[in-house]
Nucleic acid binder design. Sequence first.
DNA 1: GCGGTGCCACTTTGG
DNA 2: TCCAAAGTGGCA
Length: 873
Amino acid sequence: MKMENYEAFVGFDLCKVPLSSAAQKIMSAVHSGDSVESKNWRESEKTAEVVNNSRIKYSVLLENGKNQSLEKRNLSSSTSQTSGSSINLCPPSSSIRLPDQPSADQNQKNVSSLAPPSCFIPQCNQEAAVLQKTESKRTHFLKENKNNEKKEMPVNLKRKHGTCHFSGKTNKHVALEENADEVEAHLNCGNARACENHFCDVRYLDDLEKSQLVEMLQQAVAVVVTLMYEDGSTQLRAEQALFPSVKGIAMLLQSRVDGSGPLDVSASDSVLGEGATLRDQYIYLQTEHSFTGGQEQEAYNQFARKVLFQMLKCKCPVVCFNAKDFVRTVLQFFGKDGSWKHVVHFVGLDPRIAAWLIDPGDAAPSFEDLVAKYLESSISVKVNCTYGNSSRNVVNQNVRVNLKMLHRLTMGLCSQLKVYGLWQLFCTLELPLIPVLAVMESHRFQVNREEMERTSALLGSRLKELEQEAHFVAGEQFLITSNNQLREILFGKLKLHLLSPRETLPRTGLQRLPSTSESVLSAVQDLHPLPKIILEYRRVHKIKSAFVDGLLACMRKGSISSTWNQTGTVTGRLSARHPNIQGISKHPIQITKPQNVKGTEGTMLTISPRSMFVAPEGHTFLAADFSQIELRILAHLSGDPELLKLFRESERNDVFSTLTSQWKDITPERVTHADREQTKKVVYSAVYGAGKERLAACLGVTVQEAAQFLESFLQKYKKIKDFVQTTIAQCHQTGYVASITGRRRPLPRVRAQDRQLRAQAERQAVNFVVQGSAADLCKMAMIHVFTAVAASPTLTARLVAQIHDELLFEVEDSQIPEFAALVRGTMESLRNVRALELQLQVPLKVSLSAGHSWGHLVPLQEAPRPSDQPTSC
DNA sequence: GCGGTGCCACTTTGG
DNA sequence: TCCAAAGTGGCA
């Protein structure tokens, strides 16, 4: 789906908008789910109060029962329209209470901050029973899963053809069903009716059936997919292996049948009205390459690629739990034959992302968690079935049931997104990001392994040296990492606790033994050489394990690739794991050189973890940083004239340097990097509500001086204070805060009795609005640059990492100038984003740097801009 | 004595 | 009583 189509269908605030055909099909798919399934969604008795937010219009409209039925009729008929029509985007529930607008009785109950949105709870007084049911269900899953793991997997199943046409009336499927286990093992049967009860394995389709399948994909109203793993489990299983082996893709195709087509219609199909019905068909597509190879395999691969291409450009959305993994699997299947550019417009409706937007504090819920939270409690999910202890027949039946449930869950969550005013954000930002992240994960960072191993060995030598020193000064050998042994030496043998000027040293919790923590060691470090040695040992050990060995452990075939988590933060930021590339030390670290190291230049050794990352031959890293992104957003949101002036007038200057020179009363040229970093810390701390004590510690001045600085800063930028107060007041009023794109963070603790909790929630509220908005812009930048490169016939630059405000690309040397101009232009023009009705009062500034290693990037000369007026996105 | 686990404090990053 | 992460070691 194309970006412009998105923009068309996300302009839904007025409830009725003209839609492009592709966008409309997405909406039709969503609503065909609504019309069939809406009754299964929990509805509460009370109606939302209208807050000062146009997006709540839905709930107001929905109070009218007539509207609701009209809407349903509209929805059914809209599915057959093609373009320029109007769709009422009201959600299915007739009366919805928003979680941030609790009813009076709920307020009295002081609902826990972790409670799910109340609109999903059928009756509040049944909540305990529901939770209990869920808990017992979970225990059941765990038991079931444990049993499954013990059983062995079946081996080598023979291939068996079951040829029957989609349109044919053969009864072969009946015969096949009798031998259910084998049928399901091969998943083979092309008959339309059979496909409603079984999976059709694409491998066994004849040419006619193949073309029918492609046609079905083109006509599909909904496509629901899940990856199938080697053991028969799917993405819907709660516990996922770190590197699960994908075997294939199971999908549910829902197509409209109007009675006149070639496909058979049965009474069991869902009736949509006007003679049209929905038909479910289950398809299985193997992606794992079999051992046979040869021409047959090649022919199959070719067709499988065709099916996957068709899915990528599907006119309806593809529903998938963890859609990023699906996209990555597709990219992997394409291998060298496919460019990453093929997935750029893929739209995968991911219920996990939808649920996260609604409740960002709910960390990584599994499919069953979501079903328990958002669907009826009576539904039982069998997600943990594997081939282990269940017949394939049962496993595949569960997969079919779960695909249906996944569809229902997703449709319901989509409706909820609209209720909360999050639909636009979901469609313009979070969904387009899925292929971006999948492509990032498919690319591997080259790491200088030799250098890493050398550094590891160096650090290892230093650790050995420190250990020997420790043994020497202690007068005996002991295990340096054992705190018990260390405690015995420090306090048993050396009796440092008796020599310490501190009256009492901290003790361990339960056993009340003298602690060997860092604070204790620091307190006694002048009494004996041992504590200092231990402190350095621990420091070096930490660097070795975190930045060298930790990274080496993540390496496969000389390179690393982080896993990007789209739903791991409360502010909307991305996070990275294995390794956490966002936390890799930027500044070189100095340690004392081990004595056995040759070369005499200096006694210190510099370790620069980022320098281990190198661009491949003929390529260069290019980093694009948003300059002072949060401060610019703060200027925009507060409208502070002084801050706005600072950004508008000194567009080419560094604002933190300017502030530093003002604060320290020195010329901007004399501001050092450390000064600037300090100012940055102080400014953000002040804005986000740091106390004068913390600021004093940060600045290295007295508490009084810090208080004075705080006052003068907030006095100069008066409107910052107003912004902070307004944000907190709004949070108190509604129970949540929102970023510039409408991303929400519920903060129920803002109404807590405890003053500390309340104050913390208030600081979080202020921080979220700014940090969340910056995160929105950075994600937007990723999408826009990604799309721009994909649209270019020549550019090949790849996004390899995002470090919050910095995008790191790997660019062909020859393309640096062209790409640099494109990146700068694209990122800076995000000042205006039409799709999100965003227009910042301040310009955005992007600084570029490039180099052959990530640790050695040098600023790129600023290319002349095409025009001073940035184009809008 | 060894290894697994959960909590906490502390490091790095980013603003 | 700045905010947000991931990762590590200490401790029980």
